[in-house]
Design a binder for these strands. Sequence first.
RNA 1: GGGAGUUUAGCUCAGCUGGUUCAGAGCAUCUGCCUUACAAGCAGAGGGUCACUGGUUCGAACCCAGUAACUCCCA
Length: 888
Amino acid sequence: MSISKTYEPKATEEKWYSYWLEHDFFRSVPDEREPYTIVIPPPNVTGVLHMGHMLNNTIQDVLIRRARMKGKNACWVPGTDHASIATEAKVVAMLKEKGIAKKDLTRPEFMAHAWEWKEKYGGIILEQLKKLGASCDWERTRFTMEDELSEAVIDTFIHLYKKGQIYRGVRMVNWDPQGKTAVSDEEVIRKEVNQKLYYIRYKVVSPESEVLSQDSAPAYLTIATTRPETIMADAAICINPNDERYFHLHGKTVLIPLINRQIPVILDEYVTMDFGTGCLKVTPAHDLNDYELGQKHNLPVIDILNDDGTLNENAQILVGEDRFAARKKIAVLLETDGYLEKVEEYKSQIGFSERTDAVIEPKLSMQWFCRMDEMAKPALDYVLKGDIKLIPEKFINTYRNWMENVRDWCISRQLWWGQQIPAWYLPNGQFVIAKTREEAFEEAMKLKGESVKLKAEDLKQDEDVLDTWFSSWLWPISVFDGFKDPNNADINYYYPTNDLVTAPEILFFWVARMIMAGHEFRGEIPFKNVYLTGIVRDKLGRKMSKSLGNSPDPLGLIEKYGADGVRVGMLLCSPAGNDLMFDESYCEQGSRFANKIWNAFRLVKGWEVNETLENNNELAIEWFESRFNQALTEIEDFFAQYRISDALMATYKLVWDDFCAWYLEMVKPEYQQPIDRETLNRTVKFFEDILKILHPFMPFISEELWHDEELFGERPAYDCCIVAQLPSNGKINTQLLSDIEIVKQIVTQIRNIRNQKQIAPKEKLALSVKANSAVPYKTYEAIICKSANINHFNIVGDKVVGAMSFMVSTDEFYVPLNETLDPVAECAKLKKDQEYFIGFLRSVNLKLGNERFMSNAKPEIIEVELRKKADAEAKLKIIEENLDALAC
RNA sequence: GGGAGUUUAGCUCAGCUGGUUCAGAGCAUCUGCCUUACAAGCAGAGGGUCACUGGUUCGAACCCAGUAACUCCCA
């Protein structure tokens, strides 16, 4: 029976994925086994698979498959996030295309459209993950806005409110004037942009409103700002009290140009003396730092902007103009009236909304906040004490830095898609927190006391919804219904989960908050290890993004290279915690690897057994067994350290180099010759073990080959590679391993001679060995002869003259050739070696002659040096003898 | 401005608390092979002043100080 010459992934992948599904291999229910649990970082329900997901989910799948094959009850919970801002933006855009404006819809109408959209297009990404081979328990798929999870969100809000952790307050938030919503710090993208720095004069007056005159001319101070349109909101001018240039301004006031409002000059060391003019305009309503400075100095807050970014009446001038138009116009006005001193080009960082790309406006608004300080402390301790490990460790510092300087979390969003805040307002502005209108009414009645005029319909629920992260921080608990039913079998069994695989950019606003929630609601950590992947960049180091168009289509890659190839490709270039420079060629390497495995399989499959043959491959078999067990330990070690790409590389080399290039070549019969039963059986067993260790990385090809009836016999329906138990550590013959390393060197040297002398691999050669060491070369005769195509193998006591020679450690090897040797070239080669060893010996002797070295270095180091010396001397002796023999 | 990190072969990265034969891997490169498992392959080779400058040490890619370049986070 013959199989195709190349591996064809497509049909294989579809076949086995459905087979796994049909046989419930991904399904997990609590039982007596040890659980191993991962909750997926829920992708946005609007999302489509990108390279970041590919990496993330490949790693999770490798971990979960490995756990499954180690006999654990592996449970990978999938799901999606409702992603309030992103989804609402998509729905609004979709409605706009249909000619419907959000403002013309009622809230329930809008929500109906949004749900319809979600049902139709949402969750595509989960289907895409299946193509990658993700072995999630799909029956457990959750959505952060499904009823039960929403209920958990509302309950936790109420719980935290009652504890005093949630409050309502006026705060500076990042305002998106286009989306007309507050956005979190994390949703603000900072970009460096070219701006103009305007130098504006303010007239200095005494507090008594007299214009201060020096030589009867009015005095001015000059400030530098990039936002001249906000001068109408100024509350003060601040200077550094140590600034000698401005001592004369202490206690003075100034007039804001154009509107002539009087504001004080205040002193604070916050001001940098050498930036701009050293005078800072303080605009508490429109700048975060200014706001804090204003709070410190009790300055009034004058907000001159509307929600859409236009100027309001407080501005007095340019009312109704957009902020950017106003900026241009006010510059002209200032110029005309002689207040504009100069304008400079200036580069600075500006925040943009991740969703709408509008310039973020710092804005004071009434928002809901969750206090962080108390919650941060235990969450920090878990990580510092090592209860939760961050991988790589370098993120611990970053984490600590953030947790020690944590700010309260703004949890309200001016959107409709999400969990509506359970706050109910009475007509008089008072509010109550309750789950339903009825409960709110009861609460309100208590508040009102005897006033019976209030009706339930009079209560108005807060229009805002909660931040998406306010639901995803509950994810590891809520997917197991830990809020609805805190003692159910699932949560007790699966929680705390084991590993969380996510991107470092959401370490704070997701990972840290899950840890807080875990502590707050379960008194326990939510997961034991956090593996932080890198950011997927293109090979120029740019972040992959839609706008750059530098992101390959993941499904296209799978189509082209096969899921196994792409998985290998992703892992090959992903060192833990470092960004990875993705290049398609890695996937190509992956698919070539799949093909290599496929062809090795074809070879073994093609062997015919002759039952009468004896096994003469015992050494090769024992060697590979040792090598396999050694590699198994290495791979295990790498996994323990979450060095997944190293584990893959160790597997890759074991299969390609040790198994294919050495072992199969050692045991492979001559063309069309049969093989003995024992060698075939052992080789088939090796292959089966190899399929097992490959499976977590390359699930499809390993499963496909696993079911080959010719090699493995017919397997029962549930005997699948996906649930096979990984091989356990076996014995390692270290002597044999090191001997074979020497054998490999000999073979390489002979191949090298062939290469140099242009001798075809087919042509047989003779080899003489003059052994000066204890290596039993006779034992390895068969292997050497086969691998190097030698037909005469002699152990000799004397040097062989007129032959090509080389040394491996201190043993000498001779390959006689038909042609006569070029003595000049041989001499030159020997002399070069001699020179090297003389130099080497000199440096070793220098070390050994150094009294300080001898008295300071550890004994084992000295021993090594002595061995080096003896070795080099022995080699030099041989080289000299050879030089003599050649008479040069 | 504050904090964290990076800099080792053409590329992507290893190199554990300083000490085996003058730094390793994969890919890429070069040379030679269509040697019937695989040319998506085989065999072999070349390639590095470990960013720079000082210091500590018998000994530094590794420790310390400074410099430069880049990246990320926070403001």
